[in-house]
């Protein structure tokens, strides 16, 4: 009975997180088009529903009912499974993110490492999507994307290692609790080098501008997505946005204090302590999502060799330096 009860509770939790995430993704696309539209002095979507609010649903139905085209040269089994390989680990990593102090689906000891493992698994989907399409553009897009993601994963991992070192744990809730003890209640000012490295690597990991080379239209049509259509394309699209939300959540949890607000604010305005933690968490996540759009609207795309140079010659040495610095400070100063 006890077992059944936990099972039902967990299924409900998963359903809630799944549904809320899908809704978030739907409106993230709407928000993106509105924000970028405004930044380029346009209006963005206005036609479907009041202020274009039903646009995401129109897009969803469109992609569901589109014809599913399979290239004749494609390796069918791999072509079918590639979008699933991208989406499944990305969705799974949502299960270890603590959205507030109490709400987490799977409270495991290696939370942050689990997210990194999931990120490294979803690379396969991208490579295989490019390979199985049987098209040169898709193939090059897949190879480029894989090279980029693997290179930036190193910098990302090392900059996160400095967070683990500061907090003395890889559990996400303990990282948040450890941050709360610091003067500003967040790690971002203390680990500024690590944070900047992580921020840049997060853009590269999710294939967003200015590192969206795998999808560089002028050179590669749409990269590994070229041959995909209809629902399979929508799966890739979905996983890209979920990955953005996950990266924003990691930044919030590891550098910006997660569901807590800085103590100096609650000292002045104590009533803010009664606001539920999920509110602050979402506020910070939305800020980072906005930041993604902001960068997309302002920064031009890098060349591929520049991308590799930034990754290997700037970010990795910087993150290593940051790790050594943190280790030194933690051992001899604090």
């Amino acid at each position: 009975m006890e077992f059944l009860y936990t099972l039902i509770i967990n299924i409900i939790k998963v359903a809630v997180v799944f549904g809320v995430t899908l809704l978030h993704v739907a409106y993230a696309t709407y928000f993106e088009r509105k924000v970028i539209g405004r930044m380029q002095c346009r209006l963005g979507p206005t036609e479907v529903g009041p202020m274009g609010l039903l646009q995401p649903f129109a897009d969803m139905f469109k992609s569901l009912f589109k014809e599913d085209i399979i290239p004749t040269k494609a390796d069918k089994a791999v072509f079918f499974i590639a979008p699933v390989i991208v989406l499944a680990p990305t969705m799974t990593s949502l299960s270890v993110i603590p959205f507030s102090e109490k709400f987490i689906i799977a409270d495991i000891n290696v939370g942050m490492l689990f997210i990194l493992a999931c990120a490294s698994l979803s690379v396969y989907g991208i490579i295989l999507a490019g390979w199985s399409s049987g098209s040169k553009y898709a193939f090059f897009g897949g190879i480029r994307s894989a090279a980029q993601v693997i290179s930036y994963e190193i910098a990302m991992g090392i900059s996160l290692a400095s967070v683990f070192l500061m907090a003395g744990s890889v559990r996400l809730d303990e990282i948040v609790k450890a941050q709360y003890e610091y003067p500003l209640s967040m790690y971002a000012p203390h680990l500024i080098i690590g944070f900047v490295v992580f921020l840049i690597a997060a853009f590269a990991e999710t294939n967003r501008t200015p590192f969206d080379l795998p999808e560089a239209e002028t050179e590669l049509v749409a990269g590994y997505l070229t041959e995909y259509s209809g629902f399979r394309y929508a799966l890739f699209f979905l996983s890209e946005y979920v990955a953005m939300f996950i990266m924003s959540s990691i930044m919030t949890l590891c550098f910006f204090g997660g569901w807590t607000i800085p103590r100096f604010i609650t000292d002045i305005l104590p009533f803010l302590l009664y606001v539920p933690g999920i509110f602050w968490f979402l506020l910070k996540v939305y800020f980072f999502i906005f930041f993604y759009y902001w960068v997309r609207a302002t920064v031009p795309r890098y060349r591929f060799d520049q991308l590799m140079k930034i990754g290997w010659k700037v970010l990795i040495p910087l993150s290593l330096f940051n790790l050594l610095l943190v280790a030194f400070v933690k051992r001899f100063v604090l």
């Binding site: 290696v110 490492l113 990194l116 690379v123």
Partner: peptide, 9 residues
């Protein structure tokens, strides 16, 4: 986790 990050990833 290390098995997956290092070997698979």
């Amino acid at each position: 986790i290390i098995q997956i990050i290092v070997y698979a990833g």
